[in-house]
Structure formats: structure tokens, C-alpha cells
């Protein structure tokens, strides 16, 4: 069953210190690591949300990508279907190092809570008041076919009106976010071929 009347309303890619929305560069930064890049992006986008600074890197990346696509969206029945390769390993390593520190072993609740990939879904749900379907999948690489099958099922059973879907991965200094908003109206066709094209292009 293919819900025929859906489109990709917009997409956002964050990679190599660039934020692209719908083929247009929103923000770029020549130097600096991921953490400073995300902070500068936050400032550039004039976001006021102090909780951002408490988030781990994966949540910050997902938050910024989601912000570009959801800030103009009023539909609250928007499901979140995210995926990545590295789960929350970037933060897992921090928790693991902290609890086995030879001088002062210590477990921090503020770090431990981020040792789950779906926490970024919670952060986005809180920010945009979304009481919606959430799922976080792990794949070796971006898997538009499976994500599309799953999203089609949510749309065709009327579980959701819109879906913010895609890939958000952080692994040490490597990162990649590609999120897209599936809605009834939009400029891009909602097909796996188009998703593959948009992902490869940016």
C-alpha cells in the first residue's frame, strides 16, 4: 500500500560544516569542530532555547536539523522516524571512560541519560510539543527503502499526518544529518529514488 498523496515538503542536510535546506546553503563555517559548528549554527539561526546547551552532540545535531524543518510547521501530529549507524556510541564512550577513570571513577546522570539514541527524539518532541509516534532504527547506512516502507505504514493507517524522517549520526568527529519532512504537499516527489538522489547530491 502506497499512500499516493504524500510529498517531501523539505529536507535538511548537515555535513562538512554546511547546513543545506532544500538545495540552499543556510549556514557554513570553514573551520572548527562539530561542537563549535553546532553552537555557531544555533546562534546564526537565532534560536533561544537554553536546554540546547545541556544536550549531547547527537541531540544537538538532530535538534538543529529538525529546527530548520519544523519551525514553520504547525502540524502537531508529526511522527519522528530516525536512524543512524553509531547509535549513541559517541556519548557511550564518555560514560564508559568516566566510570572507569583510574583517579575518580564517576557516573554522571546528565551523561548517562544520553546513552540512548532515541533521547534526541525526546528533545525534538519537547521543543515542538509533539505527542507523536517515535522510532529509532540502527542500520549500517542510510536505508531509504526500509524507512519508506515503515513511514508508508504510519501514513496509510492514519497514525500520523506528517513525518520527520531520516538519518542523524555522530561518531567522534564524523557526523552526518539528513532529515526530510513528509507531508501532503511539497516540492519533491516522495519516493526512495528521490531520497537517494537528495542524499547523494548534498
Amino acid at each position: 500500500m502506497k499512500p499516493s498523496s504524500f510529498h517531501i515538503a523539505s529536507y535538511c542536510r548537515i555535513i562538512d560544516n554546511n547546513i543545506v535546506k532544500n538545495d540552499e546553503v543556510l549556514f557554513t563555517e570553514k573551520t572548527g569542530d562539530l561542537s563549535s559548528f553546532l553552537k555557531k549554527a544555533y546562534k546564526h539561526m537565532e534560536i533561544r532555547y537554553p536546554k540546547f546547551f545541556k544536550m549531547d552532540t547527537l541531540s544537538k545535531l538532530a535538534f538543529i536539523a529538525a529546527e530548520t524543518l519544523l519551525k514553520d510547521s504547525v502540524e502537531k501530529n508529526t511522527a519522528l522516524v530516525f536512524s543512524n549507524k553509531s547509535s549513541s556510541l559517541d556519548t557511550d564512550r564518555k560514560h564508559s571512560a568516566s566510570i572507569t577513570d583510574s583517579v575518580h571513577p564517576y557516573a554522571s546522570p546528565a551523561i548517562f541519560v544520553y546513552t540512548l539514541p532515541n533521547i534526541c527524539l525526546g528533545e525534538i518532541s519537547i521543543r515542538h510539543s509533539l505527542y507523536s509516534e517515535n522510532s529509532f532504527f540502527i542500520f549500517d547506512e542510510f536505508n531509504p527503502r526500509l524507512l519508506t516502507d515503515y513511514c508508508d505504514s504510519l501514513l496509510s493507517t492514519g497514525k500520523t499526518e506528517k513525518i520527520l524522517c531520516g538519518w542523524v549520526d555522530v561518531d567522534k568527529q564524523e557526523y552526518d544529518a539528513f532529515l526530510y519532512l513528509i507531508a501532503r504537499t511539497g516540492v519533491y516527489p516522495y519516493t526512495t529514488d528521490e531520497l537517494t538522489r537528495l542524499y547523494r547530491k548534498t
Binding site: L80, I119, G122, S125, S129, L130, Y131, S132, N134, S135
Partner: peptide, 8 residues
């Protein structure tokens, strides 16, 4: 499945 949109 529904999120609380409240606290992590």
C-alpha cells in the same frame, strides 16, 4: 506509540 513531550 506516543511521546510525552515533557522530559527526557
Amino acid at each position: 506509540s506516543c511521546n510525552d513531550a515533557n522530559h527526557i
